[in-house]
Design a protein around this nucleic acid. Structure first.
Lengths: 249, 249
DNA sequence: CGGCTGCTTGAACTTGTTCAACAGCGGTGG
DNA sequence: CCACCGCTGTTGAACAAGTTCAAGCAGCCG
């Protein structure tokens, strides 16, 4: 099994072999699976373990009383569900599988032991949660200010970049298992409008999306359209830097 | 000076007098002020201290290259700016004062000392950051799914509840210093539309807003319109419970 | 084959935007 | 003291972006 978590954390700063071993001890915890479209955690549940996605995609979402649903974030391999959730009495949102998902349930004890013995990992986990917060802010910006085109472009850039960080991209392609309905619930628009927007982007050869495979032939161009500035992901050691750095006063 | 931070943290679980004293040691750190409409922290800055708002309102915001701005969260007295920011190389957003603000710059050293000596405080800080994340998710839901009316209603409910937690409300009234432009930037709509939406709500006697004072005559009603379910704020020891708990399946 | 899910298309409609103008207020400087 | 400026709030009218409703199609799986 690949150590996606370690791979991702390394983006925030180098890890020693001892730290990698500590992370490997996680994979000896109980492994679970969820079928596609099933909930992994439900709003109202009392959290007791930390989940680590090792395969497949999941989402955090919230429902409104009248049935509207908003996907508030996406979880891909290597993503943790809140290091400290067990401090809360109950979940204020649900986590659902988008595809078949395998995940590890990490006991509170293990994670605390790891953090005590490896300050570098404790720090990496903290950085990770800061980055998660930054992603959530960026989604707020998208929903608040960006147009349909821009939202889709931005989301695809983010997804690609995050997958790349755990080596789940291949050249200019990656998986993108969300349906148009999912995309709508993530970007705050209707599936119909998602459809038309995707067609626009396809027509202009900015994306290719077929059979759940997304291809981004010209990444710069898509980044520009989505006004995607990757700095919020804090992938310090990226091998190339964005040209779309906005000049802000 | 009031200890808003202590008051807020107590909402997440009782604190001992020793812990309150530890928090008081914070107020002996350097106090600073910012004029209204000035930045306190700029995107790109390297964070070195943690800010604690002790008076006035501030906002986190992000700008798009073309000048559009999104307010991604509001900061009121008792709010901390990210316990662990100094782990990041640079800020991915700015923090600006909405009103004249006084804040404390807490050194990394002090906060670490406090956390080491008072595990209850360390835990309370963790809960606090989970709640901040929950608020950010809720904003995502608002921007993605709620209508103009619902957004404003929800935002006002949230603001009121948060102010109440630090004893900055008075009966059914609280301060609300945001201009209609600010409200637009926070809710992802134009100031013109904010204006008309406010008038709707006023006409129906759901709110009163004048001279930066917000009055909510019928809280239940406003909560229902905004589909505001206060549980995400995790103010455990609230004296009254919401009737608008949505039945979600 | 039949039924399901996901994608596509059209046309009418709604919500929120844009642009423009103006009123009220407070502060500032002549 | 008054004139003026800039900021906030308000209003109207034309407009655009995105929604809704409805239908049809393609692919997949049992």
């Amino acid at each position: 099994m690949h150590n996606y978590l370690g791979m991702k954390l390394q983006r925030f700063g180098a890890l020693s072999s001892g730290e990698f071993e500590a992370l490997d001890s996680i994979s000896r915890q109980s492994i679970r699976t969820a079928r596609a479209r099933r909930d992994i955690v439900r709003e109202g549940d009392t959290p007791s373990t930390i989940k680590l996605i090792v395969d497949g995609w999941a989402m955090r979402y919230k429902m409104l009383p009248d049935g509207r649903r908003q996907i508030v974030s996406l979880l891909i391999p290597g993503d943790l569900c809140d290091l400290n959730v067990f401090l809360l009495d109950e979940m204020d949102h649900s986590i659902g599988a988008l595809t078949p998902v395998t995940y590890i349930e990490i006991s509170r004890h293990l994670i605390e032991t790891i953090c005590e013995n490896h300050s570098a990992l404790a720090r990496a986990f903290s950085v990770e949660s800061l980055v998660v917060a930054a992603i959530q802010r960026e989604w707020t910006v998208s929903l608040g200010q960006r147009t349909a085109r821009e939202r889709i472009a931005h989301l695809f850039c983010e997804i690609f970049e995050r997958l790349e960080a755990v080596d789940l991209s291949e050249g200019d392609r990656c998986e993108m298992p969300l349906t148009q309905i999912d995309l709508g619930e993530a970007t705050g628009m209707t599936a119909v409008h998602v459809n038309r927007t995707l067609q626009d982007l396809r027509r202009e050869k900015l994306i290719h999306l077929n059979n759940r495979i997304l291809t981004i032939p010209d990444r710069r161009a898509l980044m520009q359209i989505g006004m995607f500035n990757p700095r919020y992901l804090h992938h310090c050691n990226r091998e190339w830097e964005s040209a779309s750095a906005p000049a802000m006063e």
